[in-house]
Amino acid sequence: MRQAFLFWRSLTDVPFDISPIIGYYAATALLSGVTGLLSGTRPVIDGHGMSVLVSKNRRRLGQCKVTTSGQLTGGLAVFAKQFGQATVTGRMGWSLSELFGSIPELLDEYRRCYPSEKPFVLFVEETERDGAAAERVSLSDVHRIGEPHDVLSRVTGLSEEYLPFQQTGEYVVLRPKFGASGLDDYTITGQKVLFLRHHKEGRAVMFSQPVVYLMVLFALSYLARYHPEKWNPFVQSDETGERLLVERFIRIAARGLPNLMLNALHHERMEFGK
């Protein structure tokens, strides 16, 4: 945990060039430490549990692929199980852009960088009317991804927590079922969100935010270490236009991942102001 703390503290000071490398080390140290604290034993971790495929023909960073190894003792599998009860079996390829599209805080930059891609997150507005909670999602945000019914069927636990959705001219309205409180996913700044499942190898998969952060940090650190021909032009001249997105991701990871680990340790959502 001490190592994790030192890595995180230095992450804010290191140059952007090497920040993903420090970020990945910081993340693995922190997730290992918290896994140990939560389980009461030192986690057995053998390797990253994922690899990165960098295509020379593909210019953009978002086109890099993170592939899970399927190894149950790999870091990814251990953390995915600990933080989100997800089981990583077999090899699944995740493009870096779809991982960016799974992080709510990056949604604006994601849309700017990858206008033709479909995000995996929806922002939710909450209210209380007539003594009943109500939530709504912008219909245009939903339509950007697909038909409301298809899109919302990809939210884990939605049908258990909410009555069938209502569609108005501009919104998809959700009301928690009687006795239910609705889903409980929020950004670190307290904005409610719905996460959509990904489809991999014929099945629906959902990784929690700490695991998504870890995968992105791994991919970026891999690029920074082993693919200078791609990383250096990107850092120096933002050849692909993705630099703002990546910079924002590093800032959010530095702030968000420790917050998410604190939530996991205390089993509650802690918010430190916007």
Partner: peptide, 22 residues
């Protein structure tokens, strides 16, 4: 629970037991 959206309030009085339900 398949259509209710809030806990109803039960009011008992001389002419019955009434509830307001959304």
């Amino acid at each position: 629970k398949s259509n209710m959206v809030a806990t109803p309030q039960l009011t008992s009085h001389m002419a019955g037991n009434g509830l307001s339900i959304s």
